[in-house]
């Protein structure tokens, strides 16, 4: 990564709103062609970080370089080669599918002919071929999301920022978006996405950073994060008497946590725990390998964040 210029580099970023410091000394580096995921609970500062990187919000301190351009000083020049998929769709409801792409291309100074030449490919990519004259309010949530993604590609960007790209979509629509995002990575585009779906992060991202209270608290590949932060095996236990059993579990495994009426047992070797549970029919259990979600919950806690 060091030999090539980073696609995105942020150092010691800080941003406060009033007394609340939303981003507190953040360092980020994304390599070209990488799919990078920024994970964090609600209010962790993910969206503010994206806005800072785009030059839409000015940091109180720190430095940002986006595609080699200093931000916010030359954010406009950087955005010429950037695509953005916001958290909430803001397609133009007065326009058809094709008009949305045409008007958006004009914001990049593209000639009508250049936009028209891209239209077919973008519609195909969005799975909206033949729907170019459809009104936005006739599209499903998944179609709108894909059109927003196509809109972000109209200027053939080198890097795409996506803020929770699949939030609110059904599984079918989500898988289709994932397939498209993988296609973009294969084409060599750099992707920076925020999400709080661990499955999404695990499937798509080459590298992840977990963010909480304005700071990065862990970074690495999904496998590295799991290996570094959590025991490889998990047993989830619930049923009558689970509280009493927790004491026993603590003797059998290094880490035991409770969330609501479920006990989570983390261990390198779960065999002793499982052997003990076989003798307790009143307790139901699930044995599974540790996932990114376990890492996430360990690092950010199980408290609700609204």
């Amino acid at each position: 990564m060091s030999a090539r210029v980073s696609a995105l580099k942020a150092r010691a970023l800080r941003k406060s709103y009033g007394a609340l410091e939303v981003v507190s000394g953040l360092d980020l580096e994304v390599a070209p062609g990488e799919c990078f995921g920024l994970l964090g609970p609600n209010g962790a500062g993910k969206t503010t970080t994206l806005r800072l990187c785009l030059g839409l919000t000015h940091p109180d301190a720190g430095e940002i370089e986006l595609l080699g351009e200093p931000v916010p000083a030359r954010a406009r020049q950087a955005r010429q080669r950037i695509g953005v998929v916001p958290q909430f769709d803001n397609l133009d409801p007065d326009f058809t599918v094709a008009e949305n792409l045409l008007v958006y291309g004009r914001y990049f100074g593209m000639a009508p002919r250049a936009i028209a030449a891209k239209l077919g490919g973008l519609l195909e990519f969005a799975g909206l071929a033949g729907r170019e004259d459809a009104r936005i309010n006739t599209l499903s949530g998944g179609m709108k999301r894909r059109l927003t993604l196509a809109r972000a590609l109209v200027n053939d960007p080198q890097l795409l920022f996506m803020d929770e790209p699949t939030t609110g979509l059904d599984p079918q629509a989500r898988h289709l978006i994932w397939e498209r995002l993988r296609r973009l990575t294969q084409e060599g585009k750099t992707l920076v996405l925020t999400t709080h779906f661990m499955e999404e992060a695990e499937r798509l991202c080459h590298r992840l950073a977990i963010m909480d209270r304005g700071r990065l608290i862990a970074a690495g590949t999904p496998r590295e994060l799991i290996a570094a932060h959590i025991e490889p095996q998990v047993v989830e236990v619930h049923g009558n008497g689970y509280e009493a059993w927790m004491e026993q579990a603590r003797r059998l495994a290094p880490r035991v946590e409770r969330a609501g009426d479920t006990v989570f047992v983390y261990a390198a070797d779960a065999a002793p725990v499982l052997a003990d549970l076989r003798g307790r029919p009143e307790l139901a259990y699930l044995h599974r390998p540790a996932s990114l979600e376990d890492v996430f919950l360990k690092l950010t806690g199980r408290d609700l964040r609204d």
Partner: peptide, 9 residues
């Protein structure tokens, strides 16, 4: 907001 993602201010 959508316009501001493009190179407009």
């Amino acid at each position: 907001d959508a316009i501001l993602y493009a190179p407009l201010t």
